[in-house]
Amino acid sequence: MDELTRVREWGADSNGPSDQARTAARTRLRAAMDEESRGLASRGRELSRRLMFRATLAGMTAAAVGVAVVVARGDEDEDEGTPRLSTVSATEVLRRAARRSRTQGSEVPPPRNDQYFYTKTYISRTPVKGGRTRTWTDESWMSVDGSRPSLREEYGKIHNDPPLGEHEVRWPPTVYSKLQKMPTDPDKLLDALRMGQKSSPESDMHVFFEGCMLMMGPRVMPPGLQAAAFEALSKLPRIRLDYDDVDVAGRSAVGVSYPEVDWTFLFDRRTYDYLGLRTKGSVPKKVGKDDWVQTGWYWETRTLQDIQVVDRIGQHA
């Protein structure tokens, strides 16, 4: 059996990629073939059939993974008590997460500037090439406005952070009054995150990164802000589903990411609760007087287990 016949049979299978995935795959394939043909023509060679097979298979697989994934619909079958499944896009996952955020709200009261955020964060780190997963459960007390010393635990190590300097600011802010000034209309928030830049793959990448930063730090969101952030990011044309098999502290997660951004939002596959962030990192290694290389690449997942507003370091709510 030749390779192209295998591709046809794979695509005809009932579990094959969706029509949307096939269309995206064909577009990627044509672009890859045109680019490769131009390069090969200048070298006087023809595009090999095996290369075409690899491009077809890779493109269709990437499209199938990036476009949709089977997740729980969020409603249950009354007779069986089990979630019904459907295939959704990254856009729909973010929209459902926004609806979930509005429904849930926040049980944490708005903080005063002189208070602290107490947080308990679960961190897991797994080598990209496979190996033992390391985990930490860090507790920290962060000054809400940065005017007081903070105690921060990172990978099990304690750091005593001094107050912010006179001209230092936190972005995104942690002060509730500053967060209240951020728009809760998704379109206006999207414009604010663009910081005056026109829509482009580069500015969209910046917007997605800013959205990750907004969700990463300890803060209490004013009503509607988290939902608006998810809806704003759902409007980015290149968002995709990733890491749909991630286990986040015992909960199966589906991820939403953006090309060339090593950050992924993780949501519960059943409820669409926001669970945390996943990122790709490395350990810098010095190889010369002023030269460093990145080694030991890993996947890291952070999940906020608890957040409370307290009056002093060491206090639990």
Results as ranks from 00 to 15, higher is better:
Y116P: 00
S147C: 02
R26S: 06
P163S: 12
L151I: 12
V169T: 08
T27V: 10
T184W: 00
A55M: 12
D247F: 01
T301K: 05
T56C: 15
E9P: 02
H206I: 13
G255Q: 11
R240P: 01
L47V: 07
Y116H: 00
H159R: 08
F209D: 14
L164I: 09
P201L: 09
P218F: 12
V69D: 01
S124P: 00
R84Y: 05
A32P: 05
P110K: 08
V254Y: 01
S140D: 02
F117Y: 15
M52C: 12
D191R: 12
D245E: 14
M213Y: 00
R152W: 13
H159P: 04
T303V: 14
T126L: 12
F117A: 13
M216K: 15
V220E: 02
R30N: 06
E78I: 10
L4F: 15
R95H: 09
A12F: 05
K129P: 01
E46P: 09
G39N: 07
N15R: 06
P259W: 03
V175Y: 00
P83I: 06
T184R: 07
L151F: 04
L241Q: 08
M221W: 14
R100W: 01
R100K: 06
T91M: 15
V309Q: 00
R96K: 13
V220N: 01
S42R: 11
Q180D: 01
S18H: 10
G165C: 01
V93I: 15
T184D: 02
V128K: 15
D2A: 04
F230I: 06
D34R: 07
R302E: 09
E107L: 06
A21E: 02
R170H: 03
K181E: 14
G59A: 11
D262W: 09
P172K: 13
T135F: 03
R49W: 09
E107N: 08
P284C: 05
A41Y: 04
